[in-house]
């Protein structure tokens, strides 16, 4: 068990290290001179020089990398060139929109997918199974941002149940804020729930065909009890993989969905920064998102060991 943990942690650190190198090289090394890139073609010589000094571009590349990474580790993400405020502050505000949105969506998708997948698998070939599968076909094929637009059209414009966009902030009250995240979360969650339902169903069907399910039935367990007590935990292994992958899709999806609902999250920040060529913000936000994805993968690896004793090794 400890060995497994240790190996996973090493891989986590190595992945983060190489990922940070990739981000640094793509954004700071490849464009040549980031300062003149950020300022555009018409910049004055002395403004460029000032920015170069501010960014520390006179230092060597390895030195710049080290100071960037050590900044990241201590919470100092640098200063935005366009807004003249610390990137860390901007990110912190926006994270309180993006992260709750992704988690809200993940919860929704799991809550929908589990019962649907289990029911469809245990009533395989029945009418409900067929209907659930047809819906998931649609759910997998629908672009989430278009689905978001349809939700706005129906619930915000026609029915006026929700506002069409914007975010009042958590200060306006928990439920007020949650309400404004509801439509975006549904738009994100339904396509993911469809995928998860399909995986849950097929994984469960595979397990139901295993020999040990026959043993369980031979003990005298009913079909339903055998499913709950023996099949479900074994079926979780592929499902966990998908949940882990989905988190990165949800984060990426959130970036797009925020644009449909005008939510002040990391997605809006990143597009504004691209438009204003604010490489410092882009660099840090991208790295932050990569870190989130890698950490979730790590958490999934730990969950594997919890579900599957074979990974913990023999005693």
């Amino acid at each position: 068990m400890l060995r497994y943990l240790f190996k996973r942690s090493l891989i986590l650190l190595a992945t983060l290290f190489v990922a940070s190198l990739v981000v640094f090289i793509t954004i700071e090394v490849v464009p040549g001179d980031p300062a003149s890139y950020m300022l555009g073609l018409n910049a004055q010589e002395d403004t460029v020089a000032a920015l170069r000094a501010e960014l520390g571009l006179d230092k060597s590349k390895p030195a710049r990398y080290i100071s960037w990474v050590s900044g990241l580790l201590t919470g100092d993400f640098g200063t935005s060139y366009t807004y003249r405020t610390p990137v860390a502050d901007m990110v912190r505000d926006r994270m309180w929109v993006s992260l709750p949105l992704a988690i809200f969506a993940l919860l929704l998708s799991t809550i929908i997918a589990f019962p649907a997948g289990v029911y469809a698998a245990s009533h395989r070939g029945g009418i409900t199974d067929t209907i659930v599968m047809a819906f998931t076909q649609l759910g997998v094929a629908i672009p989430n941002f278009w689905f978001a637009m349809l939700l706005v059209l129906l619930f915000a414009i026609k029915l006026s149940w929700f506002s069409a966009g914007g975010f009042p902030g958590w200060d306006a009250g928990f439920f007020q804020a949650l309400k404004s995240l509801t439509l975006p979360a549904i738009a994100l969650a339904l396509p993911q729930a469809s995928i998860l339902t399909r995986v849950m169903r097929s994984s469960l069907l595979d397990v139901l065909n295993e020999d040990f399910m026959r043993t369980a039935r031979a003990k005298g367990l009913t079909r339903r009890k055998a499913l709950w007590k023996h099949a479900l935990r074994n079926a979780m292994i592929p499902v966990l993989t998908i949940i882990g992958l989905q988190f990165s899709f949800l984060l990426a999806g959130a970036i797009i969905i925020e644009n449909v609902f005008y939510l002040p999250g990391l997605g809006r920040l990143i597009f504004q920064s691209i438009a204003s060529r604010d490489l410092i913000v882009v660099e840090s936000v991208v790295m932050l998102l990569v870190m989130a994805v890698v950490l979730v993968t790590f958490a999934v690896d730990l969950a594997y060991a919890w579900v599957d004793p074979r990974l913990r090794g023999t005693r």
């Binding site: 020999d211 026959r214 043993t215 023996h230 935990r233 074994n234 004793p309």
Partner: peptide, 8 residues
Amino acid sequence: MTALNPVQ
């Protein structure tokens, strides 16, 4: 080898 539930 396969007749027992591997996670119990």
